[in-house]
Design a protein around this nucleic acid. Structure first.
Lengths: 225, 225
DNA sequence: TCCTTTGTTGTCCAACTGGATAACAACGCT
DNA sequence: AGCGTTGTTATCCAGTTGGACAACAAAGGA
């Protein structure tokens, strides 16, 4: 009952051979779905491979290590989100852009961020990606603040510092809302908008009145839920 | 070269036999140190055992399962920290208490919290403990705010809401500081103090001038670093 | 056509995990 | 002193993980 080389060859039903980019994309999307469901620490090569429909060895053909895969997935999710956000914000008036950026983001997004904060301490490639993206976010928000100031709608002595402040507030509010559930979405927006109005000298309620707040883009992993 | 039963017996150098409570405490402290360094998912019975100086089998003599151990450690950390903080704050004047509560906490503490936020989404018992903990924190800070108001030092239309707001700011700042490293400890304190002063109508710099900011209690896991 | 490249599989491996269990040893009770 | 309780060790186990590797197969260029 030994099988010959020919037997094994015939038995091998290969999944379609895809182009490098296509397969790479499949793997990253599957990884993102897994991250959303089980966190960064819960991503295993075998599970990703199963979801893609290939053998776990193939993953290593595309990513040098598990950590690299996870970092690449995070990188992809965040940069695609940032890209669409940046494009969206550019088409809005300054106040709408500010409100749009600060408004509560979909739950999936923040779950990934929170997981990344936690896991980055132990996964250097993730830490690098996280750092890069936080600085990108700071830069985007700084630009938005400068647009508000240039339009004469508000004031800021140090747009970059105000950007860091508002990012901190938004992140803290997101944690309280998504991870802890102590505050609801309305209180979350109220806190962040209030902080921005107070810090930038806007008239109270200026941001809440921007209606409707433009929806932030959905990232790739959302479909995989 | 087979060793007899007697040989093995003599070779066995047992670590001192400790009382049940004492050993249990050792294990929990070691677990907390491990959680701080490697996250909840990174806690392994063998590593805990090594740190305590015993064999991994012994851990199961005290805790039914790995998950039970982790949950017990988190419960212990949270309740002991809150207890000591509450006692500490009671002995201070209102402004010092407020500054003490809002000042940046040791890195270890926030590491554990960030991990808990991340892990809670997948571990219901942890989510319950986290929820309890955050509500306790809200209650403590609300009481401190009320003391500030009663002393005529500041004003608050809704102390509980202000407590949630300041907690969100503190948590967000802690994330930016500990997990991302975008802001340093001085900027962190400046942001949180500024938010509190603005929200409660204190004179600017009132909290920063409280000197020295009373140190928050160290919890058990700190020693294990 | 031959040959190189590269997508893909199947299989092996060493490390590590949580858990179970038998034997041993210190302690307290009577 | 005898005896049960329990703190403690030393092993065994089955499962999972990330990684390495040889072999195969589909493309594509010359």
């Amino acid at each position: 009952m030994l099988d010959t080389v020919a037997d094994r060859t015939t038995a091998r039903k290969s999944s379609e051979r895809k182009s490098s980019d296509e397969r790479r994309d499949d793997i990253i999307r599957a990884t993102l779905g897994l991250v959303a469901r089980k966190g960064f620490a819960g991503v295993t090569l075998r599970e990703v491979a199963t979801e893609v429909g290939v053998v776990h060895g193939l993953i290593r053909h595309y990513f040098a290590s598990r950590d690299d895969l996870v970092a690449a997935a995070f990188d992809f999710a965040v940069s695609s989100e940032l890209e669409s956000d940046r494009a969206l914000l550019d088409g809005l008036d300054p106040l709408s852009a500010l409100a749009g950026w600060l408004a509560a983001t979909p739950e999936n997004h923040y779950r990934v961020w929170i997981d990344a904060w936690s896991e980055a301490a132990r996964t250097p490639p993730l830490a690098a990606a996280l750092d890069r993206h936080h600085r990108d976010c700071e830069r985007i928000l700084t630009a938005v603040i400068e647009r508000v100031v240039d339009a004469g709608l508000g004031a800021s002595a140090d747009p970059a510092a105000d950007s860091r402040l508002l990012t901190a507030v938004a992140d803290g509010v997101a944690v309280q809302h998504h991870a802890v559930g102590v505050i609801d979405v309305d209180e979350a927006d109220a806190i962040v908008f209030g902080a921005a109005e107070s810090q930038l000298g806007l008239e109270p309620g200026a941001l809440a009145r921007v209606n409707p707040v433009p929806a932030r883009g959905q990232w790739a992993g959302d479909a995989a839920r």
